[in-house]
Simulated scan of single mutants.
Amino acid sequence: MLFRPYRPYYLGKKQLPFTPGLIPKNQERLAKRIADTIMGSLLTPEELQNLARRLLKTERVQGAILWLLQLGLDQVQADKEQKTAKILGGILRDLLGQSMPRLLKVLARREDFLETQLNQIFDQVLLEFQLTEDQASKLSDWLLQVVLPPDVVRQALIDFLTDRNIQIIDEGFREKASGTYWVVANLFGLRNSLTRLRTFCLDEREASNTRIAELILSLAVKQRLREWLQNLSLQNLPVSTVRQLRKTMRDSVRLYVQNRGAEVLQGLSKSIDWENIATIVLSRLRNSAVVNASLETVSQELALVLERYLERDLESIVAQAIPILDIDQVIIDRVKATSAADLEGAIQGIVRSELQAIVNLGGILGFVIGSFQSISFLLR
């Protein structure tokens, strides 16, 4: 009568009593009582917190995070449509083309913008920079062949030796010369010589270029220029001059970044193929031994962070999770969805396995009491 019949029987339109059995008839109420019992006595918030602590031990959390990181890395490796590369490329494009220019424009207004970094570059790079012998030789060759070839020197002489400049040089030589030079300056002067030099440079172009080249070679201008470049260093300047140069460089960089830094970064961002860069970065990450070796360290650090967070807020998290999980309703729905036959089998199984001792004890007590009663009747 507890379980059977499983369904109600009718005589006409009237339901027969004791159909269905007691438990199938009150299965919904039984489900509610089971849920209330479990949630009120077994799965209390304190027990759920203890369960969460056991589940979220550092070792388990670290293993789960490591699995997720490895899964994410495998997903990146298996990404044939390059979705990850497109996303990363968009992030890099926005970072360099939009966010960085605005940030630089704001930071460049500060007086101490990149002060430490620029000072370090100046002190460790520019201040100690000095050309090697080979570099000085190549630079001197470039200066003499490209910047100051004979034809350029000739044209510079022509432009310099104007009538006014010749007159100024001649008059100055006459006024300031003394002794033997005074006699030469006042008798011969420099006007005629300088005028003839200019005329020669104008009329005899090839010849003057040849003469200038010979003079450069005979005067060893290349060797002197190479030695001068090799000995050129900011360390030879006075300390005050070096400090002023450092401040000037810092101010120039800050002013340039403030005025044109955003424009330069935006132009640079437009000229870069960010998807290709992202593909290269991801390919490097996939094959990087450092990344693979650091996954365990990263997962451990994240697990420790999560552990500290749970120690502080586990109670409130569980309190918020209980209504979301709706465990009591899950129990009710599960019991209600169980058929009467399955419910009977489950209860009978529990009774047979766990309560058989009570049945045996009842039989023994009945036999003993019956024996005493029989003996009592015989004695009477």
Rank of each mutant, 00 (worst) to 15 (best):
S353H: 14
L314C: 02
A340H: 01
I347Q: 06
S353P: 09
I332H: 00
V351F: 12
Y309E: 06
A321P: 06
I322N: 02
I364L: 14
S339V: 03
Q356T: 12
I324V: 13
I322L: 08
I331Q: 01
V351S: 09
Y309I: 02
I364F: 12
I327M: 08
Q320W: 14
E354D: 07
E315H: 13
E344H: 02
Q373S: 11
V368S: 09
T338N: 08
Q320A: 15
I364K: 15
V330F: 05
S339E: 00
V359D: 11
D342M: 07
Q373G: 08
V368A: 10
Q320Y: 15
F367M: 14
I369C: 08
L325I: 11
E354A: 08
S371M: 14
R352T: 05
V335M: 00
A319L: 14
S371A: 15
V305D: 11
G370H: 01
E344T: 01
G363K: 11
S339K: 05
P323N: 04
I327P: 02
K336M: 03
F372Q: 13
R352H: 07
L355D: 05
G362K: 01
I358F: 08
V368I: 08
G366H: 10
V351P: 09
T338A: 04
G349D: 04
E344F: 06
K336N: 09
R308I: 09
G366C: 11
G366V: 12
Q356K: 12
E344M: 02
E354W: 10
L325D: 04
D313S: 10
D342F: 04
V368E: 10
L304W: 03
L355C: 08
G363N: 10
P323W: 04
D313Q: 07
I327E: 01
I364W: 15
G362N: 06
L306D: 00
E344R: 08
A319K: 13
Q348P: 04
V305N: 06
G370L: 04
R334L: 09
Q348H: 09
L304H: 04
G362M: 01
L310V: 00
V351W: 12
A321E: 03
E311M: 09
L355F: 10
G363T: 06
L325N: 05
S353R: 13
V359E: 09
A321N: 06
G362Y: 02
K336H: 07
L361N: 03
I364D: 11
A357Q: 15
L325H: 07
D313M: 02
E307C: 03
D326N: 03
Q348T: 12
G349M: 05
Q356P: 07
R308T: 11
L314W: 04
E307W: 08
V330L: 03
I350N: 10
R308Y: 09
P323H: 00
L355N: 06
L314P: 04
G362H: 01
I350C: 15
I332D: 00
A341S: 02
S353W: 11
A337C: 03
A321C: 04
A319V: 10
A341R: 08
L361A: 10
G366A: 14
Q356W: 10
Q329F: 02
G362A: 02
E354G: 05
S371C: 13
G349F: 14
L365F: 05
